[in-house]
Nucleic acid binder design. Sequence first.
DNA 1: TTTGAAAATGTAAACGATTACAAATGTTAA
DNA 2: TTAACATTTGTAATCGTTTACATTTTCAAA
Lengths: 330, 330
Amino acid sequence: MAGMSDVAKRAGVSIATVSRVLNNSESVNEATRMKILKAIKELKYQPSRVAKRLRSKRVSSNLLGVLIPDIQNPFYVDVLRGIEDVAYKNNYAIIMCNYGQDEKKEIMYLDILQSEAIDGLIAAPVSENDQRLKSIIKNGFPVVCVDRGLAGIDVDIVWVNNEEGAFTAVSHLVKSNYKRIAYISGLPSIPSSRMRENGYRRALEKNKLFDPELIKRGDSSYESGVNLCAELLDLPNPPDALFTGNNLITLGALETIHKRKKQIPDEIAIVGFDDMFWSSSLNPPLTAVRQPAYEIGKRAGELLIQRITDPLRPCIQMTLNAELMIRSSC
Amino acid sequence: MAGMSDVAKRAGVSIATVSRVLNNSESVNEATRMKILKAIKELKYQPSRVAKRLRSKRVSSNLLGVLIPDIQNPFYVDVLRGIEDVAYKNNYAIIMCNYGQDEKKEIMYLDILQSEAIDGLIAAPVSENDQRLKSIIKNGFPVVCVDRGLAGIDVDIVWVNNEEGAFTAVSHLVKSNYKRIAYISGLPSIPSSRMRENGYRRALEKNKLFDPELIKRGDSSYESGVNLCAELLDLPNPPDALFTGNNLITLGALETIHKRKKQIPDEIAIVGFDDMFWSSSLNPPLTAVRQPAYEIGKRAGELLIQRITDPLRPCIQMTLNAELMIRSSC
DNA sequence: TTTGAAAATGTAAACGATTACAAATGTTAA
DNA sequence: TTAACATTTGTAATCGTTTACATTTTCAAA
């Protein structure tokens, strides 16, 4: 592929001048500009972002990193869309890394992203004690967290009020007169799992309905939804309602309930954390706590770009509202 | 951040030696190797992939590009997972670009990916006449297409037999005695939309059931599923069954059907192209043509890595089987 | 010893851009 | 004509690696 020197040769100028018209910086004579533009066209010249990034660390590489735990979870897909739209508008491309809640993989990706000299990173860390991510932040690298925080360090973060969302959902179940309300939790090492559990617990204790037997903790996956729901249904004194800790768990629980031909909500009610755009087409239309996922991504993208341009701005914690979408599953 | 020269200084050797232990190439004395390794640890040195890529074009950058039309479509998510697993195993990271079926965006991403000096690209092109992608392939750059082909050019490709899949699905509808079977197509510029239409048409014509009025062509989105389904239901002589052209269209059509409180399959049957892992939790459990999406991604990843190591290997077109998953929606 | 090959290490030129600084050219006013 | 300044262009260093080639060190055999 043609390089800048080829263009320079063809246009009969020096590479400095070529660089100048490329970055339309400083003054360059209109005639030479035209010559150079013509040469660029003819040679189909494309500047190498790699060389550019190597040379000027202080200049934007127009690359953002995104590190998410699970691309299969529609919540993160929407977050990603939000990030991407903002990035595209601001002329950034994104490297997306999906670490599948695997810490080794997360570390590998973090290394790669750093050594790719990205301008900034949006991450949902593997846990709140993510050492590697913390040290990156301490080094002054621009990072925005989404959905999950980091303990003992000041960082921009965008998330929802998980406790309140869970509290509202479970309270709705209580009001609807369910008595044995179970919670299928995601990975307990994820802060949001515990926040949601707190909300669940607060709603039940307030009404003296709390029974520790009805909490099952899994790994935030579809399979764990399938299995833990089965365990709950097999209890000698099974629950009459289910609060599921995320998207995939909800779908897994539904799978089990349907397989056992239990009626929802008559035999078992269910309300899930995380809405999906097709929730109303589920059987039955699912009552769920809706996180504004796209909005979360959008805000995170904006915060990151701000931080890149102004590294000294104080950190912001942005808590968006989760909303209970009441449909027919409870 | 510390660079290679810092490490060299600390270990009291030249940068060349550092580079050698990093790439464990050639012989280096065990004692010096230790010294250097120690210095690397102490300085938390991380090699810059950017500099590495700039220097050695012929050496692998361990970066793969993935270009997909719509990250919201669960089919592509699964393809992506397949690619990612293979990439990870072979020590490649991936840059994922989602162009949202927007040609301008696709071209931008293609430019970026090229100038990032990635090793290879897996793409589902915007159309079979994608000029930019074609010229990249002509330049000898390693590319594997997924789900969508390219006209008039030899390229590795992994997809399913769309026509056959559609034919099977629609034939099943015919066997079940539906008479007015409609097709909601995705964007006609996408080859798979037309292939599926061909299968649909062949199945109906064979049984003298074809009626051009029952074909609606949209843009492969959820919204177009919602709207075109409504148009079909509003027909003076509405269909008694629906064949939907992809995932999102299916979900959109379900939305409309439910909103109108039509019974599935009694008032209207539906079979969709593309299965989802939660299809059995839909209302009703959805009959769908299952593409082995994860497998498609995995195969594509393998083909790409092969091509990178052997640029001269003849092109392969890999057609996987689509399978009809019969549930209760027809 | 000396010699020569093998092993270990160093030197310096790339890779393809940006950019400080220098140099050349053009323009205006005295 | 020339001084003074603005405009335009060029030169060369730089970013952090890899690598061809040169050099030094080591060591066994003569």
